[in-house]
């Protein structure tokens, strides 16, 4: 804090510029004649002590890159797209430290929409998409991985979580919709509400694979090379992928959500409004279209009012990136996805 008379008063901390996550892409020739894969790296130019996060500029850049990939896929130049992170970090979600305090509900939902649009664009790519989860993945990072068709995870990943409900929010970039449809409502609610409300428990890579969130667990030593080999196998059909069968029966689905709601009530005495809302989004995910679900997430984030901002300060620093985000320090208005 400077002593200059023109400085902001100390009660209003200076807002640092967004550490923008860039999205460079390199083409990779896959083994076995499986074609060309466009490999996108989430990279903010810092080492692992400043994990990769998504702010408005980063989301805009991601959307632009995905747009270009779409053109290349349609032109037949690439046969697959994969997303991975810089060493030790895949992506740890949203970073709103770079934008001024959000005072209107509209501002809160706008950023949610931008993320949804970028992730939906990944889902709509006309070629198979892969997430190679090489390092810490939280919140929006996990949701980005969920937006891809296939996922590998490094056995070295120590932190994989949707910590939003721990912060009074909910996974609002597709998490409440994509996860239950991938692994069923019971396991999804474990990740979305039960773990966050249990001192913000993280998943290990092994658990991520056992839950079926990741399709394959690979050694860290040559994770990226192995992931590309695996992707080539998936594309050529030589690698079979086993996913747990999701029971879509309405009764089963609802009772899982009822149980999830009980967990939230028991753990928070009903004060975790974000978690309660998340349970209902998961309930609706059985029949909702993607558009309905994403809109509901946008609205939920707006409604929650968001009294806390999980900025980069709440992201884990340093490997193993397994530490919990610290509780919010300010009460300024901001969305915090």
């Amino acid at each position: 804090m400077t002593t200059s008379t023109t400085a902001a008063p100390s009660s209003a901390p200076a807002i640092p510029a967004e550490v923008v996550t860039h999205t460079p892409v390199q083409d990779v020739t896959l083994p076995g004649g499986a074609g060309t894969l466009a490999l996108l790296t989430l990279e903010n130019g810092h080492d692992h002590t400043r994990p990769t996060t998504f702010g408005p500029q980063g989301i805009a850049e991601l959307a632009e890159t995905v747009g270009r990939l779409r053109e290349r896929a349609e032109a037949g130049e690439i046969q697959a797209v994969a997303v991975t992170g810089k060493p030790f970090v895949f992506a740890v979600g949203a970073d709103l430290s770079g934008i001024p305090s959000v005072v209107e509900r509209r501002q809160a939902t706008e950023f949610a929409r931008a993320g949804h649009a970028a992730f939906a664009a990944i889902m709509d790519l006309p070629v198979p998409t892969f997430a190679f989860v090489n390092g810490a993945a939280m919140g929006g990072g996990v949701e980005l991985a969920l937006a891809c068709d296939h996922r590998s995870i490094s056995a070295g990943v120590a932190a994989f979580a949707l910590p939003e409900t721990f912060l009074g929010l909910l996974p609002g970039w597709g998490g409440c919709y994509l996860l239950p449809n991938l692994i069923g409502p019971a396991n999804a609610l474990k990740v979305i509400v039960e773990n966050p409300l249990s001192q913000n428990r993280m998943l290990t890579a092994k658990e991520v694979a056992a839950l079926g969130i990741a399709d394959v667990l690979l050694d860290p030593a040559d994770f990226l090379e192995d992931s590309l080999r695996w992707a080539a196998g998936v594309l050529s059909g030589t690698t079979s992928r086993q996913r747990p069968e999701v029971d879509r029966d309405a009764g089963v689905w609802d009772s899982a959500c009822d149980a999830g709601r009980k967990v939230v009530l028991a753990k928070s005495g009903g004060r975790a409004t974000g978690a309660l809302r998340a349970v209902e989004l998961v309930r609706a995910a059985r029949t909702a279209t993607r558009e309905e679900a994403f809109t509901a997430e946008d609205e939920a984030l707006g409604d929650l009012g968001v009294r806390c901002a999980p900025s980069s300060s709440s992201a884990p620093r340093g490997p193993p990136p397994g530490r919990r985000p610290s509780p919010p320090r300010t009460r300024r208005w901001a969305t915090s996805r």
């Binding site: 460079p24 892409v25 490999l39 996108l40 991975t84 990226l224």
Partner: peptide
Amino acid sequence: TRHVERGWGL
């Protein structure tokens, strides 16, 4: 291959 500006390659 790791590269901060170019991203990962193979």
